[in-house]
Design a protein around this nucleic acid. Structure first.
Lengths: 347, 347
DNA sequence: GTGAAAGCGCTAACAA
DNA sequence: TTGTTAGCGCTTTCAC
């Protein structure tokens, strides 16, 4: 079971009042008692129950935010997916954006220790697998979006990166490209690794060599795509036949550099991305579609199942598929050059 | 004060157990008692406290979602802003997307009646002002994003639409455009009304007539922008000198139609939007910047102030400003035609 | 300075 | 079928 105020009392010999005072920084306690209590709190790993405080204090320390159904974007899509599934089951979602890895752990810890939620959904984090594995021991069901953790209680909803990356690579090869560069995502990221691995495998299948100098590193961000591209060009290297960017953001970054230097896509070099973000459509970027909303919906579904049906460790893998536009040459469908219509998203 | 289970007991004469049973749909109660209890529940407007149930049931019915700092999009930006402010004050946010107006009320009601949050932030809703005014009587502080409600306790963080729309119109006029079309947002929407009003005013200032047939209606969505544009062209009307779309989504919709028909922007017609969404950058769309993240941060700040400092009805108006790209002709800065770099967003 | 005890609003085991 | 009662884990008077 988990540690309560009473446990701290028993261990210290103090009353709930005193312990509570220490915890709330009341000036009415001796420095000595304070020390003693805090030590035990630390020792026991005690964390006040947010729920109980809420009941007592008649506060929630929570803001509810209601949004209308409009707009897009990767996270918005995932959020919508989660939202759809949660509301269907009368659950609610509490959202937090981490501002970096340190922050990430702090956020997760708070949710877990204060028992603010029944389950935790984590997305595309930079946290090491060892840390993630440690999370399960708190008894809070964890669902990972974008990364399965083998042989653990954690559920996951990830992508079939291999199929998509394979299709993209093959597409490039079929268009006659042989010398293909790959902009990879951050080291150790599941998606980044998978995509690169599939790229290598597919090249091999077609008996094409992979020039290691053509494996450029990036961070899944647009600027990192720019950097990779301009670094290559600045070093006086010759353009490859094609570039496969690990995600659309980096593809867009590279595209920016190419355009600035008067290099035409797809005439001078072919380009494919991954994700199928909204802007990819406007830019006519051939890419691999990622079912963002489904990713969210499935994750929520799985998370709720973990809570209500106590089923753990379910692993889902969602399909990805190539979306051919016109950044790889070949059939230049004129309707693709223009801004294609989007589906309506309003009630 | 607010109604509790005990109040229902007193009024009906039943015990807490019985009332609780009725509320939880237990089969162990007579149809008659059930009727009686439910009637009083209705009469008193009783709603169980989510917090109390949480404490008792050791559940929260809530999912926490942690996101890494990546990606953009209007809502994501606003969310990030809210998130930044909430986490700074040790608050948390619970997010919900409404799936239309009916849903909107249901969501809001739940948050209020179940006291799941200390404050409510509402964004750009389609709800009538009368309903919004009614919300304040529950005692839950409400902060509106995008629409001030005069003479009410509601706080608001909205945009200076007038300044932005004025600048955009002026920009168009300065480029020699006289016959300017305006694609308006949904009827009765604050932003839509303000932008149109400023457009009219600015035209008047410059002694330019506004052709009412050139005020096209839209719904702030891309497809509605497409419709407006193609309806006009299909009717055999001549192209105006310029088009001012009430937001970027509609501008992008219109742009799609124009491109498909071989009409060049800005050569054949100028175009400006409003919002400065990400894709506007890629498309070289001149638009009006909206400080999305600030909108969220300010709203959260205000909401928290309402809770902690009990200050009500604060009204903030955030500035908007013209972002000149190349969809209006004039100085065609080559760096604008290409994909401009974005700021890095990763830790 | 510290403790005993009374709740916050609800659910559920146990009695009646 | 309904009522009594004991908590859930915490904060906070009010005594000592």
């Amino acid at each position: 079971m988990h540690v309560t105020l009473r446990d701290v009392c028993k261990r210290t010999g103090y009353s709930t009042a005193t312990v509570s005072r220490v915890l709330n920084g009341s000036p009415l306690v001796t420095e000595a008692t304070k020390k003693r209590v805090l030590a035990v709190v630390e020792e026991l790993g005690y964390q006040p129950s947010h729920t109980a405080r809420m009941l007592k204090l008649k506060r929630t320390d929570m803001l509810a935010v209601v949004f209308p159904p409009l707009d897009v974007g990767f996270f918005t899509e995932v959020l919508r997916g989660i939202d759809a599934a949660t509301s269907e089951h009368n659950y609610h979602m509490m959202t937090a954006f981490s501002h970096g890895p340190e922050d990430e752990r702090k956020l997760i810890n708070r949710v877990i220790r204060e028992r603010r939620a029944d389950a935790l959904i984590l997305m595309n984090l930079t946290l090491p697998e060892s840390y993630l594995r440690g999370l399960t021991r708190w008894g809070l069901p964890v669902t990972l979006i974008d990364r399965p953790v083998p042989r653990s209680k954690m559920a996951s909803v990830s992508l079939d990166n291999r199929v998509g990356a394979r299709a993209a690579t093959q597409h490039l090869i079929e268009h006659g490209h042989k010398r293909i560069a790959f902009i990879r995502g951050p080291d150790g990221t599941y998606d980044a690794d998978e995509r690169l691995a599939a790229f290598r495998a597919t090249m091999k299948e077609h008996a094409l060599p992979v020039d290691e100098r053509l494996i450029w590193s990036g961070r899944f961000t647009e600027p990192s795509g720019r950097e990779a591209m301009s670094d290559w060009l600045d070093s006086g290297n010759s353009l490859p036949d094609a570039i496969f960017a690990g995600n659309d953001a980096m593809a867009i970054g590279a595209l920016g550099v190419l355009r600035e230097r008067g290099i035409d896509v797809p005439r001078d070099v072919a380009l494919v991305g991954f994700d199928n973000v909204e802007s990819a459509r406007y830019l006519g970027l051939t890419t691999v579609n990622v079912p963002m909303r489904d990713l969210g919906a499935k994750a929520a579904q799985v998370a709720i199942d973990q809570v209500t049906r106590r089923q753990a460790g379910v692993t889902h893998r969602l399909p990805t598929e190539l979306v051919v536009r016109n950044s790889c040459g070949g059939h230049r469908d004129p309707s693709l050059t223009s801004v294609a219509p989007a589906e309506e998203r309003v009630p």
